[in-house]
Computed example of a mutant assay.
Amino acid sequence: MEFELTEDQRALQQAARKYSREVVRPKAAHYDETATFPRDLLATAFELGLLNMAIPAEYGGVGLSHLDQTIVAEELSWGCAGVATSIIANDLANLPIILAATEEQKKRLLGHFAERLKFSSFCLTEPEAGSDVANMQTTARREGDEYVINGAKCFITNGGHAEQYTVFATVDKAKKHKGITCFVVEGRPKGLSVSKHENKMGQRASDTVSLTFEDVRVPVANRIGEEGQGFSIAMATLDNSRPLTAMFSVGIARAALEHSMEYASQRKTFGKPIIEHQAIQFMIADMAMNTHAARMLTYESAWLLDQGKRNSLQSSYAKCFAADMAMKVATDAVQVYGGYGYIKEYPVEKLMRDAKLIQVYEGTSQVQRLVIAKELFK
C-alpha cells in the first residue's frame, strides 16, 4: 500500500495549484459577486490541459487517470469551487460517451473538444426527477432515423454556453428506469431553449440554467447505447464522477483550514493570538483531521476505478462524508473569524456558501446514505 504521490502526480498537482493561485483566486471574488461565466479563466485552463481531463488521449483529451483527476480537482476547488465546477462539467457530460458509446461515436463526439474551447452539459435532473430519476418526464419518440425529444431539464451546469448536450429521456414512461435512454444533442437545434442563469447562493461562477426541449430532433446515430440502457449509463457516470465532486469538498475545506490557521495566528484576544486558546485549537484540529480523512476516502474511490473495480460503495462514502465535512469545516472557519467571517470582504463566507451545494448536487447526502445502505445489504 503506497500513500505517496508519484513524481508525475506531484508535478500535475503543482501545475493545477499554480493555476488556481495565480489565475483563479485573484478573480474568484469578482465572479462570485457578479455571477458571470468565467470564460477567460476556462480558456486558460484549456490551454494548460486542465479541461477535458477524462477524454482519452486517442480522442484528443488529456486522458488522466481517475486518481490524477481528483488531484487536479482538489487544487481547482481550492481556488474556486464555482470555477472548478465549470471546468469539470465537460468531463461529466462526456463520461456517458466515454463509457458507453461506439468507437465511431467517440471519435465524432469527443474529438472536437481538443480543437478549441467548447462546453458540454450533462442533462439528467428535471423539476420532478432529481433524486427520483425513474420519474423522468422528458420523452424521446422514434420517428424513422430520428428521435423527437420533449421535456424540461433543470440545474444544468454550463447549459447557457454548451455546444453539446448529453440528454437522458424515456422512450416509455410505463417502464420507469428501464425506459430511460441516453442521447447526444449537438449544437442548438430548433426547439431547444435555454432559460436565464439561476441566481444561486454559492458557486456563482458556474453557469446554471434550465433547458426546454420542444420537438427537438436527434439522429438515431446519436443514441448512446440501446434503448433502456440510459439509467445504467447515468449511474455508471455518477460512480465515475463522485470522486471529483468529493474532492471539490476537500479543496474547499483545505482553503477554509488554511484561512483559519492564518487568521488565528494573527488575531489576538485577551493578550494572545486566538490560536493559543484551546477552543480554537480543537476546532482547527478537527478541521485538519476531517479534511485529510475525506481526501483519503476520495483517493481510494478513484483508485478502485483505475484498477477496473466497482466503486459504488466507496464513492458514496467519499462524496457523502466529504460534502458534510466541508460544510462543517467552512462553517467553523466563519466561527473562527467571528464577526469578520460573516463579511464578504473576508474569504470564508464564500467557502461556506460554495460548500453547501456539494451536499445537494450529483446525489444529495441523504441519497448517498441510501446508496451506502443498499450496497451494504446486498
Rank of each mutant, 00 (worst) to 15 (best):
E163K: 12
S120V: 05
V167Q: 09
Q164D: 02
K175Y: 00
S131F: 07
F155K: 05
D91F: 00
V148A: 04
V148Y: 07
A152V: 12
E143T: 12
H177K: 13
S121H: 07
E103D: 15
L124K: 11
F119K: 06
M136G: 08
K118L: 06
L99H: 12
L109N: 09
V171Q: 04
T170S: 14
G151L: 00
I156M: 08
L95Y: 14
A101P: 14
S121Q: 12
H112Q: 12
G130E: 09
T166F: 07
F155D: 08
A101L: 03
D91Q: 03
G111W: 10
A129S: 15
C154P: 03
E103V: 07
A101E: 11
A129H: 09
T139P: 08
A93F: 09
G151C: 02
H177C: 01
T138S: 14
S120T: 10
F119L: 13
D132I: 04
N135P: 02
L92S: 09
E143K: 12
G159I: 00
F155L: 10
R142P: 07
Q137M: 13
G144T: 04
F119P: 04
T166R: 11
G111R: 13
K173R: 15
M136F: 05
E126M: 05
D132G: 02
K176R: 15
H177Y: 13
A101R: 10
Q137F: 06
D132M: 12
K175R: 15
L110P: 11
A134I: 04
D91G: 00
A101I: 05
N158T: 03
K173S: 08
A152K: 14
V148F: 06
F155N: 14
V148I: 15
Q164T: 03
P96W: 02
L124P: 08
A162H: 10
L109Y: 11
D91W: 00
T102M: 09
K107Q: 15
A174P: 04
E143P: 00
G159L: 04
A169G: 07
Y147H: 06
E115A: 09
V167I: 11
F155A: 02
A100N: 13
F155G: 00
I98L: 02
I149S: 07
T139S: 15
F168N: 07
G144Y: 03
G144Q: 05
S121I: 01
F168E: 05
T139Y: 04
E143Y: 01
G151T: 02
K153G: 08
E115F: 12
K118M: 13
S120W: 07
I156C: 10
K173A: 14
T170C: 07
L124D: 01
